[in-house]
Simulated scan of single mutants.
Amino acid sequence: MLIELEVAKFPWSPWLAQIRTSFGGTAVRWCGDQTAEPGEYHVEWTVDEEIAWGRNAKPAVGVGPGVRPGGHCVVLRGRLDLTVDGAAVLDFDGTQILLDLADPLPEGVAGTWVELFIEREKIALYEVSP
């Protein structure tokens, strides 16, 4: 996924990236080059938190991808799907983010638009080649 990046470091946290996309922006953990200049980067997203329906995953208000700050967390909006082997994947504007589930999803949730509420330090961006 192509994002607009400005890297910032706060003394009490890991490297954070202030990012902008065509559908929103927020700050998340940056695992790329710590000397990266502001600009456009192709990135891969990872989520290092178990997804539990009703706790940090809920039906989306609206449709379409989205990313925004949500207090102490980041809100990701995408379409939640299951792979053939039962793994959960968030389709985030064509980018697939693999998710770990705390429990099986409720009936009828797969294929719907959802919002994930994830602590910003548990979302990471890795720079990838286009």
Results as ranks from 00 to 15, higher is better:
Ile19Thr: 04
Ile19Ala: 07
Arg20Trp: 03
Arg20Ile: 00
Arg20Thr: 05
Phe23Lys: 08
Phe23Glu: 03
Phe23His: 09
Gly24Tyr: 05
Gly24Lys: 13
Gly24Val: 12
Gly25Ser: 07
Thr26Trp: 10
Thr26Lys: 11
Thr26Phe: 08
Ala27Arg: 15
Ala27Lys: 15
Val28Tyr: 04
Val28Glu: 04
Val28Phe: 07
Val28Cys: 06
Val28Leu: 07
Val28Ile: 14
Arg29His: 03
Trp30Gly: 05
Trp30Ala: 03
Trp30Leu: 03
Cys31Ser: 14
Cys31Pro: 02
Cys31Trp: 02
Cys31Ala: 13
Gly32Ile: 11
Asp33Cys: 09
Asp33Phe: 09
Gln34Tyr: 08
Gln34Asn: 10
Gln34Val: 12
Thr35Asn: 11
Thr35Met: 15
Thr35Ala: 15
Ala36Tyr: 03
Glu37Ala: 10
Glu37Thr: 00
Glu37Tyr: 00
Pro38Leu: 06
Tyr41Met: 04
Tyr41Ala: 02
Tyr41Ile: 07
His42Asp: 07
Val43Arg: 05
Val43Phe: 04
Glu44Ser: 07
Trp45Asn: 00
Thr46Asp: 04
Val47Thr: 08
Val47Ala: 03
Asp48Pro: 00
Asp48Tyr: 10
Glu49Trp: 01
Glu49Lys: 04
Glu49Ile: 01
Glu50Ile: 00
Glu50Leu: 05
Ile51Thr: 04
Ala52Ser: 10
Ala52Lys: 02
Trp53Thr: 00
Trp53Cys: 01
Gly54Asp: 01
Arg55Gln: 08
Asn56Asp: 07
Lys58Pro: 00
Lys58Gly: 00
Pro59Arg: 11
Pro59Cys: 06
Ala60Phe: 06
Val61Glu: 15
Val61Arg: 11
Val63Met: 12
Gly64His: 09
Arg68Ile: 05
Arg68Met: 02
Pro69Cys: 12
Pro69Met: 11
Gly71Cys: 10
Gly71Lys: 13
Gly71Glu: 07
His72Asn: 09
His72Gln: 12
Cys73Glu: 00
Cys73Trp: 01
Cys73Arg: 13
Val74Gly: 03
Val74Ile: 12
Val74Ser: 02
Val75Asn: 12
Arg77His: 05
Arg77Ser: 08
Gly78Ser: 03
Arg79His: 08
Arg79Tyr: 06
Arg79Lys: 15
Asp81Val: 12
Asp81Phe: 06
Thr83Cys: 04
Thr83Arg: 14
Val84Lys: 02
Val84Gln: 07
Val84Cys: 01
Asp85Trp: 12
Asp85Cys: 03
Asp85Arg: 14
Gly86Arg: 12
Gly86His: 10
Val89Phe: 03
Leu90Thr: 05
Leu90Met: 08
Asp91Met: 02
Phe92Tyr: 06
Gly94Phe: 10
Gly94Tyr: 06
Thr95Lys: 10
Gln96Ile: 00
Gln96His: 13
Gln96Trp: 06
Ile97His: 08
Ile97Leu: 04
Leu98Ser: 14
Leu98His: 09
Leu98Arg: 14
Asp100Leu: 01
Leu101Val: 11
Leu101Asp: 05
Ala102Ile: 02
Ala102Gly: 06
Ala102Phe: 08
Pro104Met: 13
Leu105Met: 12
Leu105Phe: 07
Leu105Lys: 03
Gly108Asn: 10
Gly108Tyr: 08
Val109Thr: 12
Ala110Cys: 08
Ala110Phe: 11
Gly111Met: 05
Trp113Phe: 13
Trp113Asn: 09
Val114Lys: 08
Glu115Thr: 10
Phe117Met: 12
Phe117Trp: 11
Phe117Gly: 02
Ile118Gln: 09
Glu119Trp: 14
Glu121Trp: 15
Lys122Tyr: 15
Lys122Met: 15
Ile123Leu: 13
